[in-house]
């Protein structure tokens, strides 16, 4: 991405559009909008170089509230639209905003392929574990047993874990954050932006109308310290109010366990350090859920590789360099030709 410095630093308000924001009062999307505007100001790409692409759903309204370029497309299809934008103009800074139904139900196939192709995009998945816009049906991330208008006696199918899906789809950057985490979210988004390739960020988002409090077990102040672990590359995986707990590999297995650190527990050196380039560790961390484990928050995995559009541009440029003066008229006259007098 082109980092262009302007004489005057951009402010979050420079990324606000003139449109009235129309989510339900109290919706987690407001906080995400604020966090994204903060991150955009910090990143400093001029608004005309930034494109937000969305599908359908509450989250998909996002582009209308930013002063950048925006394309509100169709249900589930933002990833291929964004891929086309990057192929046409790789210089643009392209973000995809999607939800759990948009990305993992109707658009599941596209999410899989955009991640494995490693197109240079920031993909923000607002996970509220419900269909908001269509009035509250259960979604592919809803927990088993979720009662909704379409599952009045409880859903029976297993939910998908977005970060685990992303890792399975060979994503090279996977992170998780929370709508209300106003300090952490801009950091995570900056990291996502700095990673050249498909950057996947799950944002736990509270839908106050149809699924209020579904993440209380993770985000409630009373439990947060024990229910979240903020992972940082190279740092020991510790959590709890006084960082009194830690994660280590259960001896003789390939599973994690929560242990007490220090007196009467495991020595500090026995706690695993986070290695964000380790895909196996990332999978173990992404899978963790309360109450038995804390939910991993922060950059879970980051292991960059060439992005799709970079390699495509290279191929096109190499072909052009090989035949610098390629003329279409010569192509048309190639092969067997004959003159009729």
């Amino acid at each position: 991405m082109n980092e262009i410095t302007r004489p005057q630093a951009l402010q979050p308000k420079d990324f606000a559009s003139d449109q009235e924001v129309r989510w339900c009062p109290g919706c987690g999307d407001y906080a995400i909008l604020k966090g994204v505007q903060r991150a955009l100001a910090d990143i400093g790409t001029p608004p005309e170089q930034v494109v937000f692409v969305s599908g359908i759903g509450c989250a998909a309204r996002f582009p209308y509230y930013l002063s950048t370029y925006g394309f509100h497309t169709i249900h589930g299809r933002a990833p291929p639209v964004a891929t086309g934008i990057k192929l046409a103009n790789p210089e643009l800074d392209v973000w995809v905003v999607t939800g759990d139904g948009d990305a993992l139900s109707i658009g599941g196939n596209h999410l899989l392929h955009v991640l494995r192709r490693n197109v240079d995009l920031q993909i923000l998945l607002f996970n509220n574990e419900i269909y908001g816009l269509t009035k509250g049906q259960y979604s592919p991330t809803s927990r088993t047993g979720t009662r909704s208008p379409s599952t009045p006696t409880g859903s029976v199918d297993n939910p998908v874990n977005p970060c685990v899906f992303a890792l399975g789809a060979a994503a090279r950057f996977v992170a998780r954050t929370i709508d209300t985490a106003q300090k952490l979210m801009p950091d995570v988004l900056r990291r996502a932006h700095a990673h050249k390739g498909a950057s996947f960020v799950e944002i736990l988002q509270n839908c106050i109308v149809y699924n209020d409090g579904v993440f209380d077990g993770v985000t409630d102040k009373a439990v947060a310290a024990d229910a979240q672990i903020h992972v940082q590359n190279g740092k020991p995986l510790r959590f709890g109010k006084k960082l009194e707990k830690g994660l280590r590999l259960k001896p003789g297995t390939l599973t994690l366990e929560v242990v007490q650190v220090g007196e009467g527990g495991v020595a500090e050196g026995g706690i695993l350090a986070h290695d964000e380039t380790n895909r196996v560790l990332a999978s173990l961390l992404a899978t963790m859920q309360p109450p038995d484990f804390p939910e991993a928050i922060g950059v879970i995995y980051c292991s960059p590789a060439d992005s799709y559009e970079t390699l495509m541009v290279q191929q096109v440029e190499a072909a052009k360099a090989q035949r610098p003066n390629a003329k279409l008229s010569a192509l048309l006259r190639g092969g067997h030709v004959w003159e009729v007098q």
Binding site: A82, T83, I85, L87
Partner: peptide, 15 residues
């Protein structure tokens, strides 16, 4: 679907 959407994205971006 993706094929058509990517072409639309490309046109949107000026190709």
């Amino acid at each position: 679907i993706a094929a058509c959407c990517a072409a639309i994205g490309a046109s949107y971006a000026g190709a």
